[in-house]
Design a protein around this nucleic acid. Structure first.
Lengths: 136, 136, 136, 136
DNA sequence: GTGGTCTAGACCACG
DNA sequence: GTGGTCTAGACCACG
């Protein structure tokens, strides 16, 4: 499991981690029983503080998304809510709206966006699972 | 002007206000010269502190989205970004990264994005938003 | 870093702080990467509220003068203005107007100004300040 | 007597008025017994609120710079402190430093400044007394 | 009425 | 330890 963190975002890092893990579960990229990296592994791969990674896991556990089994790690809990195809596209639509507002505000014509996106996407690893830390 | 604030969100209230006003400008629901509610009105309608409402307006002003006129209130500015070309593309790049992260998490292939975007873009008036009014 | 605040001045405290830090950057007493005192240190040394010190830093950050790194403090940014050329000359024009008002009030003929400026400019390191470090 | 007000400045308008009148007195452009425009005249020529103009006069009167004679108007008081030539040039020097800091911060080379200033100065009326309201 | 500044103090995120 | 957000409330400048 690889996540992408934007340290410059106003959204706290632990929330970014939570949201992305939730989204991976919801989109079925992660399934019940799948093992998650340890807090230390996650913290070092994302280059964030261990407390931050631990907090994300704690919150996910208290939300019932993951389960901690003493001595063997963290796992995706069973019975987590799934998102329908419609729900996933609805969410991407909202993200697209945010992008278009930004482009509009920056006075960048919409028809330039696909080209810019293509270049940007090259920095991403194999699609469907994104790795590392935002480079900008 | 109707805004919706989620006090429980990790996104700061003043940022939520900024984003929604930017969206209203992009969709031309708000246009250059339009008057915004006063800081006090906004604060009371959103049930937030006056300072929080004022901060949203001040940040929008420093971004060139709105203008403050002494004693008479805040108005939508006449546009034309004050950022350098480099800065504008840097910012759009960051927004594109956020979009790609979302698409990855939702397991939606990148090559579907341009098509989805095109449909979404129809909701926005002129392409690039402000472009059509550049001279005004 | 030693700053002097005039609490009785009509110029807001946070603006006084901003101006003095800008001056230290222009004179190269502060350089890209230098760490600034923490918000709490600055506030206590100037005997102002923490929020006031924080506001000065936040405004300098939004102007691109300093950078904030999560949990580790504020640092002088590596320069290179993010404003468009138009915006930069518009701002200098406003500063020139202020100078001309001052010269008029002091009854100093405008044609003496370039000579006086030349002498003053010797105190500043590279001409244009950051120009010499543009590549760094 | 004509003054130049910058409505966008962080310095309150009534303080700008006070400072410029003080400077005109100090530089001997105004002398003891000279009549000042009425509050109404001043307010309308500067296009500021009457309260603002009145406040400037009140403050100057309480500082002993001007005297109000009932029914005949405001006059420069006798015995107001004067600035020496050295003091006037010292003050202009400080203003020049502020300009150079701004230019440095905007990455505008110092050698462009005299040319820009010349163009800017054309907008000013006869030198030594400046009129109207800043146009930018 | 309009917006801006500042304080004191609480609480949060991150290292 | 670092910076950021928010509130409640005072006070100021300007119309």
């Amino acid at each position: 499991m690889e996540l992408r963190i934007d340290a410059a975002s106003a959204v706290p890092i632990y929330v970014q981690v939570m949201e992305q893990i939730r989204a991976l579960v919801a989109s079925r990229a992660l399934r019940a029983g799948d093992r998650l990296p340890s807090v230390r592994e996650l913290a070092s791969s994302l280059r964030v503080n261990r407390n931050t990674a631990a907090k994300a896991y704690q919150m996910l556990e208290s939300d019932g998304v993951i389960e901690t089994r003493q001595g063997s790690g963290c796992f995706i809990a069973s019975g987590v809510s799934r998102w329908s195809k419609e729900e996933r596209y609805r969410r991407l639509g909202a993200a697209l709206d945010r992008l278009l507002v930004e482009a509009s505000s920056l006075e960048i014509p919409f028809d330039e966006i696909p080209g810019l996106m293509k270049r940007r996407a090259r920095r991403f690893p194999a699609q469907g699972g994104v790795a590392g830390r935002k480079g900008s």
